[in-house]
Computed example of a mutant assay.
Amino acid sequence: FYVIKDAARQLQEDLPWSYYRVLPKLEGGSHSGRPRVFSLISHLADRTDNVLDEQNLWVFTSAFQEVAALQLSELWALPAMMRLVLLQRLSALGAQLSDTLAERDEAERWAQRVADRAAKDPSEVVFELAEMAERFAPLPGSFVVTLTSALRAQGPVATPALEWLERRLTSRHTTLEEVIRRETQRQTHRQASVANAILSLRRAADIDWSTLIESLSVVDRTLQQDPPGIYPRMDFPTRDRYRHVVEDLARYSKATEVGVAERAILMAEMAAGEADAPPVGDGAPAVTPREAVMPLEAHIGYWLVGRGRKALEAEVQYRPPLRWRPVRFGRRRPALTYIGMVSTLFLLLMTGAWVVASGTGALGWRFVLALAAAF
């Protein structure tokens, strides 16, 4: 129970409505209206009977991306969707178990009714059985198994009812032994599914999601082609910042995330004067001779977070929301923004002081002069 409760809490933190709302949705099929990444995890859980781990997540997601690349927001939603799918399946399995327990209780009550009627008048047992058959059509497997066990416990008085039950099953082209076998298999499979789901929820807490998501990112693989080879040697937070810039540019432009990354690489390669990426490995020096002669524009960072950002935005036809434009202006013109804010504050204070001074005479005007001198 603790594992389920902790997973539900983590899901609420990781998947707020504002995040869920922007995830790409499916427009058809059994998961219509659900996020695409939810469908991906659901299909994987179907194939593995709720056994989800880092390896099969990587293999299945990589295979999916050979057809359609997932957005960065979808990749970061993988842990939340994994928990969501598993919790929903545990809920469904719990509902099935509740139904099975209710069917067993009902079967025991009917067995007692049949036995009581048989003890009074064996000829009227058939009416009790007919009513039972009408209410439960067809007879559920768990109901049949429990009813059979309860009737056998009643002794010879329940023999007519058992014979009726066997004839009923024969008319449906099955036998009592076959029903018991299928029901046993179903219960065993359900128990295994519950155990697998709980174990997978435990694994979700142990997976290194940052490493897994980065290894699955098509955008990251594209940015790895940085001409001077600087990007692969950056730390994770810096690489992640670059990827989020790509995500932002794609969200408010006509290009895909991979398209934005490819455009940044192309612009860097054009600045470098060649398209081949330098060799990068564990033994690579901190600064290669090639890096020393490459212009600043050859690094993708120049186009993503540097002075070339505006040119890249024009290339991908980036159109940010209006509410972002004052902030963007402030970042591009920090000195002008600072002077403008200080000047505006000064004018507001002076206006207020002038209003006060107008009503207080000479003392008020001295205050105005002192305030002006302070600025």
Rank of each mutant, 00 (worst) to 15 (best):
I265R: 01
E178K: 12
A133Y: 11
S193I: 05
S42T: 07
E269K: 09
G308K: 04
I213H: 04
L304Y: 01
T288Q: 05
Y231S: 03
A195P: 07
I4L: 10
L57E: 04
A292E: 11
V305Q: 09
P285E: 03
E106I: 08
V219Q: 03
L304W: 05
R203A: 13
G29L: 08
F346T: 12
S142R: 11
I265D: 02
V3D: 10
E214D: 08
A357E: 05
A261Q: 03
R89I: 02
R366M: 14
T222C: 09
R117I: 00
D121R: 01
T146A: 10
E257V: 00
Q224I: 10
D99A: 14
I339W: 15
R104P: 00
A130Q: 14
L249F: 08
T61R: 09
L347W: 13
D226N: 03
V246Q: 04
S62P: 08
M294N: 01
R290P: 00
G352Y: 09
R83I: 04
G283W: 15
E163Y: 08
A153L: 07
W324I: 06
M81F: 07
D276Y: 14
A261W: 05
R241G: 12
S217E: 00
G259A: 04
V293M: 10
T337R: 13
L101M: 09
D206T: 12
F60K: 08
E108R: 15
V22Q: 14
A271C: 06
R89P: 01
L72G: 07
T188K: 15
A115E: 00
A292W: 08
Q187H: 11
A95N: 14
L44E: 01
P227I: 04
Y338N: 13
S210M: 09
G306E: 01
V219W: 00
M132V: 00
G259E: 01
L87Y: 04
M294W: 11
L336I: 12
R366P: 05
G141T: 03
V179D: 01
A372Y: 09
D6R: 13
A372K: 05
L363A: 15
E247S: 15
V22C: 07
A80I: 06
L312G: 02
W303G: 02
D121A: 02
V145D: 02
T61S: 07
V67T: 12
P237A: 03
M294F: 14
K120T: 09
I339L: 14
L199N: 14
E106V: 08
I41H: 03
A277F: 05
R323M: 13
A150P: 02
M267K: 06
E166S: 07
Q96A: 10
F367P: 06
P295I: 04
F346G: 05
L322G: 11
S91E: 13
E163G: 02
R328F: 15
E247N: 09
H299C: 14
Q96G: 11
F38M: 10
G283M: 13
A158M: 01
W58M: 11
D276L: 15
E103N: 09
F143I: 03
K254W: 13
D282F: 15
V194A: 07
L90R: 06
E128M: 01
A205R: 14
P140H: 04
A277H: 10
A286K: 11
H244V: 00
R21N: 09
L151P: 03
R202F: 12
A118G: 05
A158D: 00
I213V: 06
R323K: 15
R233I: 07
P232M: 08
S210V: 15
